[in-house]
Design a protein around this nucleic acid. Structure first.
Length: 218
DNA sequence: TAGGCCATCTGGTCCT
DNA sequence: AGGACCAGATGGCCTA
């Protein structure tokens, strides 16, 4: 692609002797979408070289050649810009793909769309933050209970927190939290579809709980 | 077949 | 001046 235009650029000195047809037709033949619905901005450029009057033609020849050169230069810039834009979007997609790999897999293994990935990541981060916050709270509560038990005259049994109850306590507290993420429109306990990815907090919490918390003693 | 998602092109704007 | 970023337009592909 690039080399094609480089060749055109290098041969631009006799552009009209060889390329009258090109200069009189659509300049965007190489780009599939640009010929549709887009105003051909350099259309006026292509009119100049097609003039039939020989006297004017000679006078215009130099100017037309400049126009052709400008045309080719512009075309070159456009091609390069397109290339950069394509690479930019590819790197954006790569980053999105990397993000997908660090998110928990879903039973329905169809690929998350871009917007779903972003929303899910947002809520997942939020859920993990909540997990840490609540774990911290419970750790402090257990510590204070343990401290209190030392003051009791007889032995006292302390209920050990279970993952399930933690998830429930988190769930209830999360529901009252003002910092809950948006995009949650259905029950967190039944995120069955991609549409419900944003409402994945409970499962995400359980996921994070079982993966990160069990080793800790509260 | 309509609608959703995506890739690409494109021109405008901002930044270095 | 050239590159990065952005948003709009367009067409292709897929699915319900």
């Amino acid at each position: 692609m690039e080399t094609v235009y480089s060749d055109m650029d290098s041969s631009s000195c006799d552009y009209f002797t060889h390329d009258d047809e090109d200069s009189c037709s659509s300049m965007h033949a190489s780009s599939p979408s640009s010929s549709i619905g887009k105003p051909a901005s350099p259309a006026s450029d292509s009119q100049g070289p097609c003039a039939t009057d020989m006297g004017q033609k000679k006078r215009r020849r130099g100017r037309a050649r400049n126009e052709a050169t400008v045309h080719v230069v512009k075309k070159n810039r456009r091609v390069k810009a397109n290339d950069r834009e394509r690479n930019r979007m590819h790197s954006l997609n790569d980053a999105l793909e990397t993000l997908r790999t660090v998110l928990p897999a879903f039973p329905d293994d169809s690929k998350l769309t871009k917007i779903e990935t972003l929303r899910f990541a947002h809520n997942y981060i939020w859920a993990l933050s909540e997990t840490i916050r609540i774990a911290d709270i419970e750790q402090r509560q257990n510590k204070s209970r343990a401290d209190a038990s030392l003051l009791l005259p007889s032995p006292c049994v302390i209920d050990a927190p279970s993952p399930g109850s933690d998830a429930c306590s988190w769930s209830s507290s999360a529901s009252s939290s003002s910092s809950s993420p948006s995009y949650c429109t259905s029950s967190p306990s039944s995120p069955a579809t991609h549409d419900d990815y944003g409402c994945f907090q409970t499962d995400v919490l359980q996921y994070s709980y079982h993966n990160f918390v069990p080793g800790m003693s509260y």
